[in-house]
Design a binder for these strands. Sequence first.
DNA 1: TTGAAAGCGCTAACAA
DNA 2: TTGTTAGCGCTTTCAA
Lengths: 330, 330
Amino acid sequence: MGFNQEKITISDVAEALGISKTTVSRAISGKGRRQKVIDYIREHDYVPSPIAKGLANSRNYNIGWVMPGDSTVTDLPFFQRCMIGISEIANKRDYDMILTLVYDGDITALERIVKNHKIDGIILGRTLIEDERVEFLKASNVPFVAIGSSEYREVIQIDNDHISACKELTSVLISKGIKKIALIGGKSNHVVNRTRLEGFKKGVSEQGLAIDEGHIFMDADDPLSVSQAVETALQDKMECIVCMDDRICLAALDCLKRDGVSIPQDIKIASFYNSSLLENYVPSITALQYDPKVLGMEACNALLDIIDGIDVPNRKLLGYEVVLKDSTKE
Amino acid sequence: MGFNQEKITISDVAEALGISKTTVSRAISGKGRRQKVIDYIREHDYVPSPIAKGLANSRNYNIGWVMPGDSTVTDLPFFQRCMIGISEIANKRDYDMILTLVYDGDITALERIVKNHKIDGIILGRTLIEDERVEFLKASNVPFVAIGSSEYREVIQIDNDHISACKELTSVLISKGIKKIALIGGKSNHVVNRTRLEGFKKGVSEQGLAIDEGHIFMDADDPLSVSQAVETALQDKMECIVCMDDRICLAALDCLKRDGVSIPQDIKIASFYNSSLLENYVPSITALQYDPKVLGMEACNALLDIIDGIDVPNRKLLGYEVVLKDSTKE
DNA sequence: TTGAAAGCGCTAACAA
DNA sequence: TTGTTAGCGCTTTCAA
């Protein structure tokens, strides 16, 4: 059973050294510090079995990384970067990552790893306003953290500081003299979009402008809706279009190009999220810059801390950069 | 330790029913069939601990899915689709998937899951001509299968039938009267690219044309190389450009658009790989169509069969579709 | 500090 | 068909 390999166990080590398993175990876990043992296991490269270890203290040294199975091309790079951060930290702390795909309205895959006790904790990849995954996890008492903010107060959250970031970018734009500013946003049941909207409004208010609800286009998550929003913005002679994410921004840019509108002469444009998709665009696009990898690392550290019984803050917000480029030049 | 939950064990079930653990165990694994037991465990929703089960028969009911950590935006959708197929089958067969990112020249993450016995087998995400991952896995005696072909004979491989597919598409194009045909390909140390090249040449030969090595541009894995290749093709008045994958095709289309070359009037274009990136292009692009999800499913089934001691064929090739669209219209 | 022994929850001989 | 027993490889009381 299993694949053959030099299966040297803790008993072997104990026997070879003429001491008890207990001593070996202690030496390994840093309690007893017997150099002999350390040397021996290194030399014979003995690796403790995580399965046995798991059985002994009901853990399996795996965490679950839950990603929406229906992620679009544009989401993927973000999740990939998070994932890199997660697995880097996980491995460093001797954990591995079980990847689970869940779909809207079907969380069976999540239920299975929890019920089967395949994981010691879970990292949630994106949060919704009403999130059945969160509900389920709370009910089943599994340690978990969410990447992205959540309205559920008790949930441990790691997020970028979208509010401050969006507020700042908006504010900076307005302070450059822009008065008529439109916002095109994605699905409003994604927490992140709500948060960005909030930041935007704060930025507008901060600069003493009125919120122009007529030019805030939410739920524009397909090219057609974006196109309609852009057309309206053009007709109403808006000076700047702010897009909530890279995909929307790209769609908007497409429309503008199609219509022969030049940037930034005819209209300015900016994005609340930068990504590889947007990076090489000409003209260069003013955008907020985050680091999803760090998000993953922080989330993983938080989760493992919780598992280890260490207290972690309920909410951690990470930094951002406002990067001004040609698309908003005077 | 671990999160609290109604931890009902096999002993509890045995005691409650006044029978032995063995009988319960057998009933569960379908040996003994005692309806009483089945009913009881369903009712009290008892879930056997995979950790204990694992310890007892040295398995952990996890498979490793090894993906290149430095995948580009264009690769991601392919891997995602594979992944969906893998986890679907894995879950169905009561396994979970540990995701491991490896980098060119750094396979430590792979080594760790193997050495730590965290997985019962491995699926490799892409194959290289000289593959240190393959070397390592062979040496360490872990069951594994590769998605994509490999030159290592003994390796179990699941792949699309690229040779036939590329041959057929090439052949079809030529049979429509095209004589001067250029090929732009990616990294030649990727097995898939070698295979596609081979299929292309076969198609050309099949139609009685000579291989025009001067217009086969390999290792064009950046926009600049693609651009140079396209320019050469245009200068030399090629009638058709065939691209090895969607990314290259997209880059080529960019060049053509930039140069004001119209498709298919001025030049025809086709791709050996279709994807969501290419799908909505105008004009529609002639391309080969595969299903990465099926690839994942087949790979997973093969791996689990191997783990279960069932023989599987060394090589399995999946189907494809040649989809002719506007980009190659007369 | 060290070791003997029990136990984590399951499976697999071996007997009955 | 059923039960008894002995592990799987580790951690952790509890004494020494």
